[in-house]
Design a protein around this nucleic acid. Structure first.
Lengths: 221, 221
DNA sequence: ATCGACAATTTTGCATTCAAAAATGCAAAA
DNA sequence: TTTTGCATTTTTGAATGCAAAATTGTCGAT
C-alpha cells in the first residue's frame, strides 16, 4: 500500500467519524486493519496532524482533532475567502461547457430539493461548489479548499435544515448560477460569501461544535 | 529533538535554498547533521511534502520542490485572496494598539526606503503583512498564509526592484496603513490585492520560476 | 567507439526491535 | 474508605536491520 493511500484511508476513517473527534487513535488496531506496520502508519498520522485532522500529544499518542466553535468559525471564514476567490477566478476562466455542466448539476439539485431529498441535495450542492473550484484552474487553491472543507464537512453536510433556510439556500444557488453564466466574478464572490455565511450560522446555531475545550493547532507552522 | 523541531529545521534548510529547488535531499547526510535516524527524518519529509515544499518520488527519494511560472502565479493568486480576507477581518477586529504598532513599523519601513536599504525594507514589509494577518485573529488563516508565503518567500523578498516599482510599493503601503486606520475593510482588501498583483508581476517578469518542467502536486489531496 | 545488457552497489520503504515515558494496578497508610 | 507511593505493564518514539527497487558501473557485441 502506497503512502498516499494510507493517508487517504485514515483520512476517510476520521471524516466518516468512525474514530470520533477527541477519541484516541488506536495505533496497533489500525496497523492490523490496514495490514501495515507502525512506521508508515505514524508517518501518515504526522501528515494528518499537519492538515489539522489529527492532534499529536508528545508521548501520549494521537487523537482525532476536535473542533471548537471558534475553530468552526475560523474554518468557515477561510472557506468563504477561498470560495469567493475561486468564484472570481472561475468567472475569468470557465468554459461554456463547464457552465453547462454546472447548470445541469444545478437542475438536478433543485429537483432533489423539490423531492425533499436532503442527502441527494447535499451531494449535488457539493458537486457544484467543487466544480466552481475546479473551474478556477488553480491547483493550490483547490488543495487548500479540500483541506479546509474536509474539516468542516460533517458540520456542513450533516446539519439539519429548516424549510425556510433550505429555500433561501436554493435561491442563493440560483443567484450563483446566474452570476456564473454572466461571468460576474465580483457578484459571484459576494453571493458565495453570503451563502457560506448563512451556512455557518446554521451550523453554529445547531451547536455542532465538537468540544468546549481548547485544542487544534494551526495546521501549518 | 522534537518532531516539530525536525520539520522546522528542514523547512529552514529548504527555504534558505541550502538545498536548491530540484535537488535531491540527501537523507543519510541530513540524518547525521541533525543527529537523528532515518525514521523521524522521513516523517518530517512526508509532512513537508504535504506542505508542498518537498516532492516525493516513490522509490526514488525526495527532492526540494521546484516552482514553475504557473505554480508561482497560483500561489500568488491564493496569497492575494488570503491577504485580502485577512485585511477585511483585521479591520473588524484590530485594536488601536495594534494599529499603532503597524503604524510605527510602517514608519521604519519608509525610513529604510529613503535609505535605500532593500533588505531592511523587505524585513519591515514582511512584518507589516504578518501583523495584518495576526490582527485578523484567525489561526487557520494564519496557518495557510504561512504555508503559502513560505513557498514564494524567496521570490517575493529576493527579486530586485526598480526605483519606480519601489516607489509604487511604498505608496501602496501608505494606502494600506490609511485603510487600516480608517478600518476600511473593503478598501484594504482592494489595496492588498493590487499590491500583491504588482509584486507578482515583478516576480514573474524577473523570471524567478525555478523550472520549466512539470511538478508540484497540490499540497493536500 | 558506442550502445545495450547484466551484475554490483546504493538507496528506498517497511518491519522489527529497543529504550524511555506514561498509564495502570496494587498495596500500605492515613 | 480514601489516598499516596511504588512496581508493573503498556505505549510511545526512535534506531536498526532487511528485502525490494533503482541506480551505477562494467563488459561484451556491434
Amino acid at each position: 500500500m502506497l503512502h498516499e493511500e494510507v493517508v487517504g484511508r485514515i483520512r476517510a476513517i476520521l471524516l466518516d467519524g468512525e474514530i470520533p473527534p477527541g477519541a484516541r487513535i488506536p495505533e496497533r488496531e489500525l496497523c492490523e486493519r490496514l495490514q501495515i506496520s507502525r512506521t508508515p502508519l505514524r508517518e501518515a498520522l504526522k501528515v494528518l496532524a499537519a492538515e489539522g485532522l489529527v492532534q499529536l500529544l508528545p508521548h501520549r499518542g494521537s487523537r482525532a482533532a476536535k473542533l471548537t466553535d471558534k475553530d468552526m468559525r475560523d474554518l468557515f471564514e477561510v472557506c468563504q475567502g477561498l470560495e469567493a476567490l475561486a468564484g472570481e477566478l472561475a468567472c475569468e476562466r470557465i468554459t461554456d461547457a463547464e457552465i453547462d455542466a454546472i447548470s445541469a448539476a444545478h437542475g438536478d439539485m433543485v429537483r432533489h430539493y423539490r423531492d425533499g431529498d436532503l442527502i441527494q441535495y447535499y451531494r449535488g450542492n457539493r458537486a457544484i461548489h467543487e466544480a466552481i473550484i475546479t473551474a478556477a484552474g488553480n491547483p493550490v487553491l483547490a488543495g487548500l479548499y479540500s483541506s479546509v472543507t474536509a474539516r468542516i464537512r460533517r458540520a456542513r453536510y450533516v446539519t439539519p435544515m429548516t424549510p425556510e433556510r433550505w429555500a433561501v439556500a436554493v435561491k442563493e444557488h440560483d443567484a450563483i448560477l446566474n452570476a456564473l453564466q454572466r461571468r460576474d466574478g465580483v457578484g459571484l464572490a459576494h453571493i458565495l460569501r453570503a451563502h457560506l455565511r448563512h451556512k455557518r450560522e446554521e451550523v453554529l446555531q445547531a451547536g455542532f461544535a465538537e468540544t468546549e475545550g481548547s485544542e487544534l493547532a494551526p495546521s501549518v507552522a
